[in-house]
Design a binder for these strands. Structure first.
Lengths: 231, 231
DNA sequence: GCCCGAATTGCAGTCGGTGCAAGTTTGCAC
DNA sequence: GTGCAAACTTGCACCGACTGCAATTCGGGC
């Protein structure tokens, strides 16, 4: 986590100088400080490239708008071949959002599945969502800039929701382990509600200027739902 | 509404015989019965083509899967030019889902905006959602087949959610008129929750084999949310 | 230094989607 | 029914996203 935060602080703060030409040098430098002692050069370069691509995409999209930016342009900006771009992301949109498999395979997940930490379903879901929101795969600020841009591009919002939808399977598995076949909380409602709470929390966090943590909004959102739906 | 139901019953039940060649004749016939006495030929043809395209898409996608079906194939099946396809739909995906602007500009919307019918927010939302679910723009069965296919194609589900997201603006406008700036029910939560309830209700309805009306599920979903989120 | 596997790259090709400039068809008035 | 304007359809040329393949380069362990 710290790795990403540092990395992003270094290379993402502002477009630096490199407006033109290959930014390979910058990117490589951006990844100089790695966390877990011995991370191979290979791995560092990979991360650096990935972040360079995301940053390049953000820069161009912020300036020209999503549809006006071609993948070729992004690649030129980042100094890689078009083909390589698609080795990193499945689509142009994914690059804006920095989409990557979210690491839910934590002890947090395990704890939740086995009935912890409190034993109360809602409270534990809250913990789970909070935990997920606090450990993004790409670093807070890059994530935030992705959302910033997504807020103005409906298609991106859709992609993001679709991406969340995909993790529904994972969540369902977790819930099944925990709930067994307890019919009092149908899976479809629980999973979908979790997703929507998460989504709304992130959106509010972004709307508030990204201050603090997205997780801070979770409680407020739940409270609002409760108020609306109360008998 | 009855128009569409009749039309779909006639031409959509099964692929009939026309597996090959222009289905223009079939399509034209499918639209023979128009509701509001005098609907111009132009309008009838338009609807017929639209439905023919949706049906052709459904047929091919059901057989070969979304990605294996090209727009050209759909057009050949339906007997129109490729260019025409895109006069009717913005994308291949939209054709599967039969997406069209949803007519929310009813008295129902007006009633809701002005505080009716009951005066209780939740109850009135329920009425609104129910009303919307009972008057689909393309006919129940076509809608159902769209969902059927969407359930197996993640991308389609995403598109559908995105499409709902788009109507959020409309809903927000409605809510603003009704609520003014009542801070006790933040707009983002209300709109998102409405979408969520609608979506889940439709999914359940589909999972139950499409018996009855999607609206029937709305109450159950709300009850489940309440149970989950209760203090 | 040397070799293996991983990552990058160029290329050729498919498909989705759009703008434009003809045709055709429909609605309408006379 | 004739004629005209508006609405639709269609073919065509074109762009850009994305993929599979085969050649090449590059990092890491020996």
């Amino acid at each position: 986590m710290k790795i990403l935060d540092e990395g992003s602080a270094a290379s993402a703060a502002e477009p630096s100088g490199a407006q033109r030409g290959p930014a390979t040098a910058d990117a490589a430098e951006g990844a100089r400080a790695e966390g877990p002692a011995a991370v191979g050069l290979r791995e560092r370069k990979k991360r650096a490239r990935r972040e360079a691509l995301i940053d390049a995409t953000h820069r161009l999209v912020a300036r020209d708008g999503l549809d006006a930016v071609t993948v070729d342009a992004i690649c030129e900006e980042a100094g890689v071949s078009t083909r390589t771009f698609f080795n990193y992301f499945d689509s142009k949109d994914d690059a804006v959002l920095g989409h990557a498999p979210w690491p839910l395979t934590d002890e947090a997940a395990e704890t939740f599945a086995t009935g912890g930490p409190t034993g109360d379903l809602l409270a534990d879901l809250r913990v789970l969502v909070t935990h997920v929101l606090e450990t993004p795969p790409t670093g807070h600020d890059r994530m935030r800039r992705g959302f910033e841009l997504a807020a103005h591009e409906p298609r991106l919002l859709a992609k993001h929701i679709a991406w969340m939808e995909r993790s529904k399977g994972e969540l369902t598995a977790l819930l099944t382990r925990r709930l067994g076949d307890d019919p009092s909380h149908p899976l479809d409602v629980v999973t979908t509600l979790v997703l929507f709470v998460t989504h709304t929390a992130v959106m509010r966090w972004d709307a508030n200027g990204g201050e603090g943590d997205a997780a801070d909004q979770v409680d407020a959102v739940i409270a609002d739902i409760r108020a609306l739906v109360a008998p």
